[in-house]
Design a protein around this nucleic acid. Structure first.
Lengths: 356, 356
DNA sequence: ACTGCTCGCGCAAACGGTTGCAGACGGCTC
DNA sequence: GAGCCGTCTGCAACCGTTTGCGCGAGCAGT
């Protein structure tokens, strides 16, 4: 600050401090070669220099507040210590906890997530992947619903590790972590059947996603196993898993005239859509119709009525996904793994026994 | 370990494609010098080469699928095209829309956000800032409540632009965008007064944050202006703006024995905390006590009762913040600006006239 | 035809680290 | 005491782009 020596350029002296010191400066201060300084500073190569030198270098680094420049390092090592995270929409309450889990786990290992929203739009997804690849991410986590598998195959070819979240591509070598959708739906149907329901409808998600497909598949299986009729007329599928689509499907189902006393919704948002038509049509939930959701997203306990749903460990899902990816980044040859997280039933106010 | 790749060798051809082609290769293919290729590829320097050459280079680039390596570019230009985003907790429903706005706006200009959660912990905040600085972000957006202003001053000194979200440091040169907290609370109080309430309590946030301070300040002012008594016994402040703290404060307020028929909560989460004690104590809302929140976070319309609250344009806030930052990155000399976003009152089911 | 321009392009030096290679040095064995 | 070996450090070549500098060619002016 004190312009003691310089002319006017109060800040332009001492290398301007911009972005802190360089390795070269540290080396100079410690009286060693930059290469040596590099080795001393890097944990893994520290063993290559004498303890005394290491100590001296570290002290020098500390003294002038040196922080390694990851950009420069990345250029040489072609490692960015960065991973891409693809999600449909951060605004969907399902994702923040997942992302949070990812961030926390990644941070521990010095990795930084680059988050991109795709809005479930194939084009956006593709361009996001390209952008991420251009940024030289070391890996990719993706929680998008329908993936252009071509794009991912591409990545795999480039040698960029990928792990899928919340869905899986069967038979592929892509690692994944997802809730046990089948088990979850099983829990839901059994709960409803236990309450005495026999005519249960299913508002399924898009069958193109493993989430949608698995859940409706499990729905049918469980119904059958319990001796109930998985009437195709009671299953409507295809739409996105949003409130709007839930509302639409629920309305359709009601209009079809087929009788039912309970609904297994593809997820909580879809269940919320049902609530909307109930409200509009004067239907009592759970009196007239019971509903169970899926995900147990935040505030599910505060809706009117509080939503009975299937809880999955969101944040843990993020953590595990991050771990799988890290593992794969370090050892690209590791075998593919598909991890399934156990769901649990959370009974609240949206389910009850059917009227006799 | 990585003996995996040696024998199979299927992928090791053609330079392994790892991370796509380099500028040098493009240049070679186009028959020009790398420097020329660089100029041709870069929009801004394209004018320096002949049109014919540019065309040839671009074609070559396209042919071999060249994508510039931002790491290398960043090393040379000391621009990472990356900005840090500091938030307390992504899991707090207030933030996803803000972040989404930031992402969308930044993306348009080729910038990528690096998001870090601080959990309102000073230590974490400091280390996050350091980590972000180490990654050489070009700027910083921060939505954290209480900021160690020293840390930010530090950044400012390093020449890293900062813009504050959802709060402001008065008199500082830091740019900021925030909702007009005073106007918001004014709306809330006027609404309540309009319904006939005279004894209105305020569950304030921490006075150390501009959000908390401004809101409670405006509360008192408005009460006074309306000729109502801003009884200090009706104002409790200090806690974090969470459900738990809201619950605690609400319970305290009730226990104090001071009469009141309405509550202005510091934000929606605090309001939710009130709902919890109402439920536990058998208090009817809005029958016995009216509540108005702040933020109109997602699902505020679905609570029981639907929450009357002050809506602020979250996503727009993110967008504006990003714009301010971009502006400042490009022109560091630009004057400081504090932007205030207009809030609106959203009347729902948690407010009603007091019992006569 | 010669000077003086402008225009396009090549050249090479960065940016800040990492890393294979080789040499210096000291201690050990025989 | 010579040879060998292991340890530590210096050297320099990268990694992929950007960019200041200068040179040669083309062209107009006189």
């Amino acid at each position: 600050m004190q312009a003691a020596d310089s002319n006017g350029g109060s800040d332009a002296k001492e290398g301007a401090k911009r972005g802190s010191a360089t390795l070269r400066e540290v080396a100079q201060l410690a009286g060693v070669h930059p290469g040596t300084a590099s080795r001393a500073i890097n944990e893994e190569t520290r063993g290559l220099v004498s303890e005394a030198t290491a100590k001296r270098v570290l002290a020098a680094a500390k003294q002038i507040g040196y922080t390694p420049n990851p950009i420069a390092r990345g250029l040489k090592t072609s490692r960015s210590h960065t991973v891409g995270v693809l999600i449909p929409d951060l605004t969907n309450p399902l994702f923040p906890p997942i992302v949070r889990g990812i961030q926390d786990r990644l941070e521990r290992d010095g990795y930084t997530p680059l988050i991109a929203n795709t809005d479930n739009d194939g084009e956006r997804e593709k361009s996001s992947i390209e952008a991420l690849a251009a940024r030289r991410v070391d890996g990719l986590l993706t929680a998008t619903a329908q993936a252009d598998s071509a794009a991912f195959a591409n990545l795999a070819e480039l040698g960029i590790p990928v792990v899928l979240i919340n869905r899986q591509v069967l038979g592929s070598s892509l690692r994944s972590v997802a809730p046990d959708d089948r088990a979850g739906v099983r829990l839901a149907v059994e709960h409803l059947a236990g309450l005495g329901h026999t005519r249960i409808a299913h508002l399924a998600g898009p069958s193109a996603t493993s989430t949608g497909a698995l859940r409706s598949q499990s729905f049918e299986e469980t119904m059958r196993r319990l001796g109930l009729d998985p009437d195709p007329a009671l299953i409507v599928s295809g739409g996105a898993m949003t409130e709007a689509e839930g509302e639409r499907h629920c309305r359709e189902q009601l209009a079809s005239g087929v009788e039912f006393t309970a609904i297994v919704a593809a997820n909580d948002l879809v269940a919320l859509g049902c609530f909307d038509v109930f409200e509009a049509e004067g239907i009592d939930c759970p009196g007239d119709i019971s509903v169970v959701g899926f995900n147990d997203m935040r505030f599910a306990d505060r809706f009117d009525p509080p939503l009975t749903t299937i809880r999955i460990p969101h944040s843990e899902m993020g953590v595990r996904a991050a771990e799988l990816l890290l593992e794969q980044i370090r050892d690209p040859g590791a075998p593919a793994r598909h991890e399934l997280l156990e769901p649990t039933l959370v009974v609240r106010g949206s389910t009850a026994s059917p009227r006799p």
